[in-house]
Structures are given as C-alpha cells and as structure tokens.
C-alpha cells in the first residue's frame, strides 16, 4: 500500500503556455522514441509521461529541464541497442528541405523580376538548377514563370527524398541488426 506518512505533493495548476510547452516537448520526445520503441509501447510511454508531468508538483520549466533533452531521454527508454528509422523526423526534414528549396527558388525568380522592372526591360530568362525560369514586365502584365517539364517536379522530389532518407535514417530499416551486436 502507498505510504500515507509521506508528505503529499500537490499538483501544480498549469497555464496554457505551460501545456503548450509540455505538448511540444512530448511531441519531440515521440519523434525520437520512434528509434527505440515500437508504436504501441511508444504511445503508452508518451501518455504515461504526460500524466506524470501533469501531476509533477514543480513548475513546468523545472520538470522539463529535469527530464533532459527529448533525444537523450528517448535513448534512456531503449530496451536494446537496436535503432529503428525516425519516420516523423524524416517527414519533417523533407518538409524543411522543400521549404528551403522553394524559398531560394522564389527569391531567385522574384529577384529576376525586380531586376527586369528596374532595368526597364520587358523580359529576362535564366536557369535555376536545370529549371528554366523567366520574369516579365510589360505595360499589360507582370509576372514570373518556369517551364513545366520534368525538371520542375523531379528536382524538388529528389531533394525531398534525400532529406527524408537522411532525416529518417532509412539505412536502419535496411540493416536492423547493425547496431544490435
């Protein structure tokens, strides 16, 4: 039976910001737990930790600091040396890579458009990583365009796939027992 003589540790009331921070921490932990625990066990671990955090008498900052970095905490939960692919982190990495690609691409094209307007010319053409882009500015219209051939789709797909491969550590799925020795 639980010891009734031990001092009671009242639960602290959490603000909305505290709940968001705890949720973000648990989400990041969930991503890293993919490497060490199977799905059902991972969800149970996160659920249990959520309840534990809710009943922790200390403030959220102290509680989260005491738990440590999500990646390191996830490593502590590992039952063996086997590491699984990090699918969620792979998707996030791929999304981030695409976002960076499109930001650079659009910055390049809009830069061309600005140059066309400032120079007073009607149209400019260039190649951005094998994709032909153009910017035009006439009295009737202003705009940007790029070719709709395979390069427009293939290049971002390759970038996203590579980022997913590296972010998810796909090789762990190919050689699951590589680290189990």
């Amino acid at each position: 039976m639980p010891d009734k003589t031990l001092k009671a540790t009242p639960t602290r009331r959490r603000s909305f910001g505290d709940k968001v921070r705890a949720d973000m921490y648990l989400t990041r932990l969930d991503w890293h737990l993919e490497a060490v625990l199977p799905g059902k066990e991972r969800r149970a671990t996160v659920k249990e930790l959520r309840q534990t955090l809710a009943s922790d008498p200390r403030d959220t900052t102290t509680s989260l600091r005491d738990l440590g970095a999500p990646r390191l905490l996830a490593e502590q939960y590992a039952g063996d040396a086997r590491r699984r692919p990090l699918w969620s982190i792979g998707v996030i990495t791929a999304g981030a890579a695409l976002l960076i690609y499109w930001t650079v691409f659009l910055s390049y094209v809009f830069g061309m458009l600005a140059a066309v307007e400032s120079l007073g010319s009607t149209e400019a053409r260039a190649t951005f990583l094998t994709i032909e882009v153009s910017a035009y500015s006439t009295t009737e219209a202003i705009g940007i365009s790029w070719t709709s051939d395979w390069a427009w789709l293939i290049l971002p797909t390759i970038i996203a796939a590579l980022a997913f491969f590296l972010g998810a550590r796909i090789w762990r799925a190919i050689t699951p027992s590589a680290k189990s020795s």
């Binding site: 031990l6 540790t9 930790l49 008498p57 005491d66 440590g68 390191l72 905490l73 502590q76």
Partner: peptide, 21 residues
C-alpha cells in the same frame, strides 16, 4: 516522483530523466 523524493531524503539527487525510463 515519490522514489526521487525518497532518494533525496537519503542524500541522493536523481533526475526524473533517469528515473522514469
């Protein structure tokens, strides 16, 4: 958390990051 408090009473400070896993 009670285990952590009991260890603290013994003079040992252990983080939740070690105890819960």
């Amino acid at each position: 958390y009670q285990l952590i408090e009991r260890l603290a009473d013994l003079g040992l400070e252990v983080t939740t990051g070690l105890m819960y896993p």
